[in-house]
Design a protein around this nucleic acid. Sequence first.
DNA 1: TCACAGTGCTTTGAATTCGAACATATACGG
DNA 2: CCGTATATGTTCGAATTCAAAGCACTGTGA
Lengths: 175, 175
Amino acid sequence: MTDTHPTPADGQALDPRQLGAYFALMEAVSLLQHQVEQQLRTEGDISYVQFQLLARLAHAPGHLTMTQLADGVVYSRSGLTYQAGLLEKAGLITRGPCPNDERATLVTITENGRALLDRVLPGHIQVCHSLLFDPLTDEDLHHLGDIMTRVRDHMRAQPPRSAAPRNRRSGPTRT
Amino acid sequence: MTDTHPTPADGQALDPRQLGAYFALMEAVSLLQHQVEQQLRTEGDISYVQFQLLARLAHAPGHLTMTQLADGVVYSRSGLTYQAGLLEKAGLITRGPCPNDERATLVTITENGRALLDRVLPGHIQVCHSLLFDPLTDEDLHHLGDIMTRVRDHMRAQPPRSAAPRNRRSGPTRT
DNA sequence: TCACAGTGCTTTGAATTCGAACATATACGG
DNA sequence: CCGTATATGTTCGAATTCAAAGCACTGTGA
C-alpha cells in the first residue's frame, strides 16, 4: 500500500524534521493569533493589527511615516491608510505633515492611544503566558528568542514590502 | 502603593527576553507568510489558506468533515464554506455526504488537487529554505521543531474554535 | 413519540484586506 | 532648468473573512 500515490517531490523534499518544525510553527502562531485577537477585541475593542500599530508607535522614539509603519507590521500601504483612518477617528493616533519631505505623513500615538495600550497589555501578556510560555522552560525561551530573532533579521535583510515594483507609467516600454 | 493589589501588569509582566521572543516570532511568521503567499499565487494561483487545506486533505488518511478542516487550519466555518466552494469549483476537491451523519459533509482532494499541490510544493519548500532554514543550524532546527510542537500541542489541548458557544435559543427565558 | 438542546454546514451582511490606478512630491540626468 | 523615473500616500473595486442568524439533522429525556 506504500505507494498508492507516487511521491512527487522526490529530490526537493524537506526532511521530516524541517517539515514538522515549519508546520508546527505556522500552526501554533495561527492559534496564538486567534486567541490574542479574541482578547484584544473583548478588552480593548481593537484588532491585532491595530494593537501592533499602537505598540510600534509607542516604542518608536519619535514619529513614523506611513510606509515605515506598514513595513513594520507587514501590511499593505492601502490597508494601513484604512487602519490609520480608523485609529485617527478613534483619537488613538494623529497624522501630520513631515517637515523634510512634503509627501510623507508622520504618525504619532496620542495619550489616549497609550492609555488603551496600557489597558489591554496585561490581558495580552496573560494570553501569551498561558498559551505560549506555559509549556516552555527557561532554556526553551532562550532558544526560541535567539532563533526567531536571527530568522527575522535574515528576512528583514530582504527588500521590504513597499519596494515591490509599482506599475510602469504608460505601457509601451519605450527605452 | 507598594503592593496593595497584585496589579495586573506587575506580577505578570513579560521580561524582556519573553517580549523579544514573542515579537520576533510573530514578526518572522508574518514575513514568511507574506513571501509564501506571493510564491503560491505566482506558481499555483492559490492562496495560503487554500494551500493549507489541500495539504491537510492530502495527508489525511481518508476524508475530513468541514468542521475538522476548519479547526485544522484555524479558520471560521463560514470562511471554510466559501473556500471549499472555490476549491470545488476549481475541481481541486469534492464534497460528498457522510454515511454515518446526514448533517456532515465529507471533503476529499481530487487528483487535480494533488497535482496542483505537487506543482507548487517545490517552490514552497524553496521559499522556506531561503527564508526560514537558511540562517539556522541543524541544532536550531531541532530546538525549533521541538519547542513549537510542544506549544502547538499545548494550544490544541484547548477547546477548538468550533466549540465557541452558540447563541441561546430565545434569550429571556427564565434564569 | 415529542420537545428541545446540541452539532454541522450554509447564507447573509458588514468589515477588512489587497493590488492597481491615481495625484503629488522628490531625485536624477541631460 | 526640463523630462523622466522613483517615492509617498490615498482612492477605488474586487476578493476575502468573520460572526450572527438560519436550516437540517442527531441524540436525549420525559
